[in-house]
Nucleic acid binder design. Structure first.
Lengths: 145, 145
DNA sequence: CTGATATAGTTAGCAAGGCTAATTAAAATG
DNA sequence: CATTTTAATTAGCCTTGCTAACTATATCAG
């Protein structure tokens, strides 16, 4: 190990903790029957409402061709609807169907309950610390100058 | 939105924060020129020392055939060495080469510096909160009964 | 000691999800 | 109204997951 500053050490541990946290949560998401990228895109449509393919791709930080294929899969499973935008007929309007919304909520509930079950083993004070840390992390990582 | 308990809300925000944090870090890792699974496997060998393919697969939580292919790629780039175990000639011994170790350290340095740069914009107190939260999260997520 | 079984790793082949380049169709612009 | 820009798709590549089936070696029971 080379020497790291105190802040770098914190950065390293934060990174590693985030990885391990998500690794455990992902197991829960597998139960939804939806692959991760599809689940994530569907979630954006359920919580963010109808949008175009380009917007969805941008939100998910992938290229349009990648999103096009994900959307194909979600549509063929009846989880989203793809219609032509009347104002701009090049564009599509993507929105979650009832079925898609229901499936997403079930998965979200499962994931949140799993995490909450673990968090409930902590003291109120420890949870407060996590709460504060989340705010600090968001501040630190926010888009900057 | 259906109603979530206070703990479930925290769980949800924690999840979302972890996702966004790692998404930003992943951009840094791309600069190493190594794909994520390869980078991660190499990192286990650099920090964990020599081990067999099955051990490495277990550590990385993937199946042996998946690891076999990742190891092929790392070997052909000269980042790891694969030798036959003398005690058990079915098994292989995997270890990072000098080149592999150097590349990994560069990438780690880049990633840690990136995160540290963001964290340095916080107050000492805010960083202390993150520090405490990491401990709490690790406690919460630890293998349990 | 030897035949059966177990174990380590690889190979083959499938699916998901990332990308770039090229194409199609519609809109906007000069 | 011809040109350029934009939205989305298609084609084709790579990486990374998986299971099933195989090879080679080690272990164990009789």
């Amino acid at each position: 190990m080379s020497k790291l500053t105190k802040i770098e050490e914190l950065a390293d541990r934060l990174h590693s903790t985030a990885i391990h946290l998500l690794r455990q949560v992902r197991v829960q998401d597998a139960a939804s029957g939806l692959a991760p990228a599809r689940l994530s895109a569907l979630s954006v449509l359920v919580f963010g409402g109808a949008m175009s393919l380009n917007e969805l791709a941008r939100t998910e930080q992938v290229r349009p061709p990648t999103m096009s294929r994900i959307v194909d899969a979600l549509e063929s499973e009846g989880l989203i609807r793809r219609t032509v935008n009347r104002q701009d007929r090049r564009a599509v309007v993507l929105e979650a169907t009832k079925k898609g919304t229901a499936i997403l909520w079930q998965g979200r509930k499962r994931r949140v309950k799993f995490l909450a079950k673990h968090l409930s083993r902590l003291t109120e004070e420890e949870r407060k610390k996590i709460e504060d840390a989340i705010k600090a992390i968001q501040k630190a990582m926010a888009r900057q100058s």
